[in-house]
Simulated assay, not measured.
Amino acid sequence: MRGRAALAAAALALGLAACQQPALAAESAVAAPKAKRVAREGKGLKTAIFAGGCFWGVEAVFSHVKGVRSAVSGYHGGTERQASYNLVSSGMTEHAEAVKVTYDPNVIRYDQLLRIFFSVVADPTQLNRQGPDTGTQYRSAIVPTSAEQNAVAKAYIAQLKAAKLWDRPIVTRIERAQGFYPAESYHQDFAAKNPRHAYIVRWDAPKVAALKRMYPRVYSASFRRD
């Protein structure tokens, strides 16, 4: 992807230290409020899909949340035939880079996952981009997989809009679940396997650090994948 490739090339030329600067203001963490509409999902594991720019960082954050059983990078929307890194990167397939999160609602609720998403994962005011990456494939989107999740997501976005935490309008979309396709194996657990990668150091490690700082009760030091 162009943003990641350009950043990596710059890091090679200037040294890794150049990629260790604090995140830009647009990517800074925001203390989103607790949801007024609490999710009631019953027993058993549940799944939810989140799109927030590069899936490396989205996966990295959710993989460090207690109660999350797995976080899988992939592509939401479009067709299965077109769900490949090269095609999705063109921005012409209607997919979004996304992460499918499987979680135990008795440990972490859906509304709490939403709070984490808006606090440290994505800037909801950026349209079709996050950080250095641009294009519709990097849009921020919430993809509910049940009627309860859909109701909670709508209520929470309305709550955030009323709270006026950001200077610009919230553009994060709620999208209908229409197919999730796991990304290539080398994308899975990318941040955990490549902690010194220039992109991870510059853009994604700060998100995990913000999760630990802001939500210590739900932060898990171990990277989990079932």
Score class of each variant (00 low, 15 high):
residue 215 Y to N: 03
residue 39 A to R: 10
residue 212 K to N: 09
residue 6 A to Q: 11
residue 6 A to R: 12
residue 150 N to Y: 06
residue 84 S to Q: 11
residue 36 K to A: 15
residue 71 A to D: 05
residue 70 S to H: 02
residue 103 Y to P: 11
residue 89 S to T: 02
residue 122 A to I: 04
residue 30 V to L: 08
residue 129 R to Y: 07
residue 96 A to T: 15
residue 148 E to I: 06
residue 12 L to W: 01
residue 42 G to F: 03
residue 129 R to F: 10
residue 218 V to C: 09
residue 66 K to M: 06
residue 162 A to I: 07
residue 40 R to M: 12
residue 29 A to Y: 03
residue 191 A to C: 15
residue 222 S to A: 15
residue 208 V to M: 01
residue 134 T to C: 06
residue 169 P to M: 05
residue 15 G to H: 00
residue 114 L to H: 07
residue 168 R to L: 15
residue 124 P to W: 04
residue 193 K to L: 14
residue 43 K to Y: 10
residue 2 R to Y: 11
residue 32 A to D: 01
residue 158 A to M: 01
residue 106 N to Y: 09
residue 170 I to C: 13
residue 132 P to R: 02
residue 96 A to E: 05
residue 112 Q to S: 13
residue 125 T to D: 12
residue 162 A to L: 09
residue 130 Q to H: 10
residue 7 L to H: 07
residue 177 A to S: 09
residue 130 Q to D: 07
residue 126 Q to M: 13
residue 8 A to C: 00
residue 25 A to C: 06
residue 159 Q to P: 08
residue 141 A to H: 06
residue 36 K to Q: 15
residue 128 N to G: 12
residue 4 R to W: 00
residue 222 S to W: 11
residue 152 V to H: 00
residue 117 F to Q: 11
residue 163 A to C: 12
residue 209 A to Y: 04
residue 173 R to Y: 03
residue 117 F to V: 11
residue 106 N to Q: 14
residue 118 F to T: 06
residue 89 S to V: 01
residue 217 R to D: 15
residue 116 I to R: 07
residue 221 A to V: 13
residue 216 P to L: 09
